[in-house]
Design a protein around this nucleic acid. Structure first.
Lengths: 112, 112
DNA sequence: AATGAATATTAGCATACTCGAATATTCGAA
DNA sequence: TTCGAATATTCGAGTATGCTAATATTCATT
């Protein structure tokens, strides 16, 4: 079911959530730690975590007052690794994508 | 830049575009072929292709009246392969996700 | 140059996402 | 049982996305 895959990608389609998933690929973290390392508001982090939870991308572990999040399947971390690889290959065009903004949808291939 | 990765994921975060990318991973296709095999309107396909173009995910080749699309980097196909793998592993929960709809955001782990 | 096929773009509406603010829950400590 | 810390949920406004219908473009043929 392609809708499922699309759902996973959609969950990853946000810088904050990518950060969270990438970080949780290394070690589990509490919501507080996530907020701190990202510099975002608690409610906001919690919302993003809810998205990842709803897609069963992360798991939780309760310890006293706080909740530890961890990645549920290392496969996702591999996928993000591949994406890093992709990122490196296309570095240059990324640069130009970051500079130009408005007409990026009109560009077909290279210049000329 | 995490925003770049998020952009790629966002481009993949739609069933139609996943289909397109998966298919183009195998062979190049014209817009007409894509429309036909997907059973969607031409304008719709063209819009999705514009999204993929804007992210430099696909390339085009013009031949007479029609335009052939192909995947630009096989790495993306590998990423989708890994996603298929992920899909297989989590098949069961996918099923339940498809059945239940409204409260999927509230579920934390399994039942009880 | 006029026509028709293939593809692209635009406009407008409906839906979904994202964020901040406010409020609710849960749990340990007193 | 009350209080404070950690986390979650809800609400509202602003923005983005996706679809359909209509219109534009591009190219080969005539």
């Amino acid at each position: 079911m392609r809708r499922f895959k699309a759902g996973i990608f959609q969950a990853l389609a946000h810088p904050t959530r990518i950060f969270i998933v990438e970080t949780l690929g290394q070690r589990e973290m509490t919501v507080g730690q996530i907020c701190e390392s990202l510099g975002i508001a608690q409610a906001n982090a919690s919302q993003h975590l809810a998205v990842l939870r709803s897609k069963h991308i992360v798991e939780t572990r309760k310890e006293g007052n706080q909740i530890f999040y961890r990645l549920r399947d290392p496969l996702l971390d591999e996928i993000l690794k591949k994406m890093r690889q992709y990122f490196l290959v296309h570095m240059t065009e990324v640069m130009s994508l970051l500079n130009e903004d408005p007409d990026s949808a009109t560009v077909s291939v290279s210049s000329k």
